[in-house]
Design a protein around this nucleic acid. Sequence first.
DNA 1: CGACGACCCTTGGAGCCCCAACTTTGCGGC
DNA 2: GCCGCAAAGTTGGGGCTCCAAGGGTCGTCG
Lengths: 239, 239
Amino acid sequence: MATSDPVYLRVVEDIRRQINDGTLPPGAPIPSRAQLTRKYQVGETAARHALRVLVTEGLIIGRVGSGHYVRERPILMPLHRWRFPEHPTPFAADLQTQGRRVTWEWQIDSTEATPEIARRLRLPLSAKLTRTRYLYRGEGRPLQLAISYEPVEFAAHLDEERRGVMARMSAHGVRITEIRETVHTRVPRPAEADALQLPAGTHVLHVERTHWAGERPMETSDIVLPGDRFRVTYSMPVG
Amino acid sequence: MATSDPVYLRVVEDIRRQINDGTLPPGAPIPSRAQLTRKYQVGETAARHALRVLVTEGLIIGRVGSGHYVRERPILMPLHRWRFPEHPTPFAADLQTQGRRVTWEWQIDSTEATPEIARRLRLPLSAKLTRTRYLYRGEGRPLQLAISYEPVEFAAHLDEERRGVMARMSAHGVRITEIRETVHTRVPRPAEADALQLPAGTHVLHVERTHWAGERPMETSDIVLPGDRFRVTYSMPVG
DNA sequence: CGACGACCCTTGGAGCCCCAACTTTGCGGC
DNA sequence: GCCGCAAAGTTGGGGCTCCAAGGGTCGTCG
């Protein structure tokens, strides 16, 4: 409102308003740098800066040679947890119940515990682990990355039919009694931005999930989701 | 690695590496624009752009007239949920158990249901609601915003001693049986960035919490936390 | 009628410059 | 020894320009 604040903000706020109130629907082109300078009577630097801010906010996307366009408002897919604790891929399972086809790839290898993973699994640094990397896709687009770590001795049945963590562990006489998850948000690492095809400026949701058997952590995984497309939902019965 | 990618990225990656491996500890000054142009043999535009990217990523902070500094790596405060379902302010409660003093302010007023809130509470748009706005502070700094909505008839005891949602409802014969929470991340709204004193480029965690009595939603709240400082933790016993 | 190339426009990288507002520092005077 | 002020350095807003790479369009040629 104040006419004293930066001119590029005037442009940003005007375009943002138009996107929010639907004047500029998803897919609509944003005026080019040259058009903005004329329309708002600002220099090229200000026009360019305004566009960059909007890209960073995830509201618009720039295509070289073509223009800037209002980004598709992603349907925030609810990822119901807790109702599928026995399923190895609750996210995928739930997405399928919503009529979406979800496919996944995974790679299994062996590794040693990093400081962070050792802390989470309460194991020494030299501990041998089986690492499984998952990439989930829906409608051709990557949806979610996950890396799971568990002691090698439990991963025996993994190749044959990908049974869930809990089923696999119970085959070894280990009963999972609790799942703990921590959700936070951060800037994607370059590899993640690449794998998930994230536009610049978007954040990811990072879910840290650990399966516990009593007081012993048995498996832990890092789940990375595009933060602007996903919600993680928890349901907790009371009393 | 490739010498063909933008020069500003070379600067970004070098500084990012130094921050990550501890060469530049929290609080350490980043070379100024003029120094960067000399050190990396780049133009002012590239140096400036590199700094802006690092600010956007939340790694450094710029102070006008002084310089850029490595941001304090915030201790990601774990916010354990589920263990305090009976407490109206589980976040605050948990922070106190970690030896932090947390204070809060709140304002109560009346409002009508917005489309979003009406949907969540399954009420008509004209429904009268009691809205309570909370601002939590710890060590002087704002920590968390929350806005709670509930039908006016349940808010009776709110003034006297701020009993929790569930206790207040049970005084009216309503038994809460389930809490559902949805976590996602987004860019803060201007008012939120202001209230939470968020630096540019940081995201917030948005927790949508609804208290249910059987199949009826009874109360819903929006909880907004600085995404780079907080984790939300869920613990789920497995049957 | 279809394919291909020329031309225009757009983004994104990069360079250089000016200026206001603010911080830090160091020097001179009391 | 201390205070205050001036000078130097720094960020952030803004302006202008050049250029490479790529998208779009239209007209021409085979």
